[in-house]
């Protein structure tokens, strides 16, 4: 894989996704207790201007497992940003300390902008409501884990399709894998953005009711509907309830269909579903470290 920054899900080719998956498989096969020295002497910065637990900690674990040193911060407090430093200056400073920067920022396009002020590699760990490419890599890796390939399956993507960056990245990444069909299941006010839909090269349909399509799905991807997207709390409550995944709905799924969720979840999945064989979101989360090890190894690793 060519060394370059990863800003969006389409920064990798299909072949590079396959390469990433097979390298990640190897780390997974050797197990979590193994440590490596592929990134020995390297410093990975975790610049989380917006707080994060999962993405930040799985990147940190992945970097440490590969032998890198990890520096960084989480949240704007306590760093110069709180004193009014702009993003460009913060990135310049970090790039003189590190070989690679994983960043999350509240503004859309922040990671792309960061690549313009530094030559240090940047991995986008989420920029506003724009993209979260490594989550899409984890998502597809999880699908591949179950079905051996992300291709030729029927996907249902449920919830907030307008503001969820993981959805943008996933929909784009799927353009490389010829899904059989994709149902975009959301309330009308949270439909996927035109900008994303215009780039899709596979058949899709926007629907409002999951029960119409549940029996056709191989993969159901659930996202959270956030309160702050609604002006009116009553409206939010109404929408939220109708987009919560119920146990009854899940009983209509095909026998080997799976449910994924980028996590954290709140109330959007009935906890009784956790015990069904469809629930694969914890497996998905467990794969994240191996996938991110694979990515860091391919972008920064020295063969030893």
């Amino acid at each position: 894989m060519r060394r370059r920054s990863i800003i969006g899900a389409l920064d990798l080719t299909k072949e590079e996704y396959e390469e990433l998956f097979s390298v990640s498989d190897e780390f997974k096969r050797r197990g979590f207790s193994q440590s490596y020295s592929y990134l020995e002497g390297k410093v990975v910065s975790l610049a989380f201007f917006e707080p994060s637990t999962r993405t930040r900690m799985s990147f940190e674990t992945a970097a440490l497992k590969l032998g890198a040193k990890v520096i960084g911060f989480s949240g704007e407090e306590g760093i110069s940003v709180a004193k009014g430093e702009n993003l460009a200056d913060t990135i310049r400073m970090l790039s003189s300390y590190s070989d690679l920067i994983v960043m999350r920022h509240k503004f859309d396009g922040a990671a792309r902008f960061a690549t313009e002020v530094t030559d240090t590699l940047i991995i986008n760990g989420g920029d506003g409501k724009h993209e979260h490419p490594t989550q899409a890599m984890v998502d597809l890796y999880a699908v591949r884990e179950v079905f051996s390939s992300p291709s030729n399956l029927v996907y249902g993507i449920l919830g907030d399709l307008k503001y969820a960056r993981t959805v943008n990245s996933l929909l784009r990444a799927l353009t490389l894998f010829q899904p059989k069909f994709v149902y975009l299941i959301s309330p009308p006010q949270l439909r996927a953005r035109r900008e994303i839909l215009d780039t899709l090269n596979y058949p899709y349909k926007e629907v409002q009711d999951i029960n119409e399509v549940i029996s056709e799905l191989d993969v159901l991807y659930v996202t959270r509907i956030q309160k702050e997207r609604f002006a009116d709390e009553m409206e939010y409550e109404k929408v939220r309830e109708s987009y919560e995944l119920t146990y009854e709905t899940v009983t209509q799924m095909k026998r080997d269909a799976i449910i994924l969720h980028p996590l954290p979840r709140v109330t959007e999945i009935d906890r009784r579903i956790d015990k069904t064989p469809h629930a694969r979101y914890f497996m998905q989360a467990n794969l994240a470290v191996y996938l991110r090890m694979g990515l860091l190894y391919l972008l920064l690793g020295e063969k030893k």
């Binding site: 993003l87 460009a88 396009g109 792309r112 506003g128 035109r194 900008e195």
Partner: peptide, 26 residues
């Protein structure tokens, strides 16, 4: 960001449609 300058790419010319290089908004 004080240093950022807006950048747009042409998606279509007639009717004109541009896309932000950073956030990809039309």
């Amino acid at each position: 960001d004080v240093e950022a300058v807006s950048k747009f790419r042409i998606v279509k010319t007639s009717p004109l449609l541009l896309k932000c290089e950073y956030c990809e908004t039309y």
